[in-house]
Amino acid sequence: MKKLLLIGLLGFGGWQYYSDNQTGTHSLPSISSFAPVTSKIQAAPQPSYTCDGREHCSQMRSYEEAVYFIRHCPNTKMDGDHDGIPCERQFGR
């Protein structure tokens, strides 16, 4: 993302320089004249779960942890009907 922004700024500056030279003025826009780009999208917090060999619902502390395990860890036995919802009886989903 930063590389794309830098390429865009350099391209704009080059175009501005070229167009100014065509009209007789010789100024480049300063980098400080551009407003900073801010993102309003926040990254989701990364879970602190790791595949540690747990396979069963009774070993899970939360629904989110069970979901992480069935999506990222091998040999889990928490989604008997294979609908993507683990531990339905334990967590009431």
Rank of each mutant, 00 (worst) to 15 (best):
K2C: 13
K2D: 15
K3V: 13
L4C: 12
L4Q: 14
L5V: 11
L6I: 14
I7G: 10
G8C: 14
G11A: 14
G14Y: 00
W15M: 05
Q16V: 11
Y17W: 08
Y17Q: 05
Y18M: 09
Y18F: 15
N21W: 01
N21T: 06
Q22A: 10
T23M: 10
T23I: 14
G24R: 03
G24F: 06
T25C: 07
S27F: 06
L28F: 11
L28K: 01
P29Y: 05
P29F: 04
S30P: 08
S30I: 07
I31T: 10
I31E: 02
S32H: 07
S32K: 05
S32C: 06
S32W: 08
S32Q: 11
S32Y: 05
S33M: 09
S33N: 11
F34R: 06
F34W: 09
F34V: 15
P36M: 00
P36R: 07
P36D: 09
V37A: 13
T38D: 03
K40D: 04
Q42C: 07
Q42G: 04
A43P: 04
P45C: 00
Q46M: 10
P47E: 00
S48R: 06
T50H: 11
T50G: 02
C51T: 08
G53N: 09
E55C: 04
E55L: 14
H56D: 14
H56T: 13
H56N: 14
C57H: 01
C57N: 09
S58V: 14
S58F: 09
Q59E: 15
Q59V: 09
Q59N: 12
M60H: 05
S62A: 11
E64W: 02
E65W: 03
E65M: 12
V67E: 02
F69C: 02
F69Q: 09
F69L: 01
C73S: 05
C73P: 07
P74R: 07
P74K: 10
N75I: 00
M78L: 03
D79H: 03
G80D: 06
G80A: 14
D81C: 03
D81H: 01
G84Q: 04
P86D: 00
C87S: 04
E88W: 00
R89T: 12
F91E: 01
G92W: 03
R93D: 00
R93S: 12
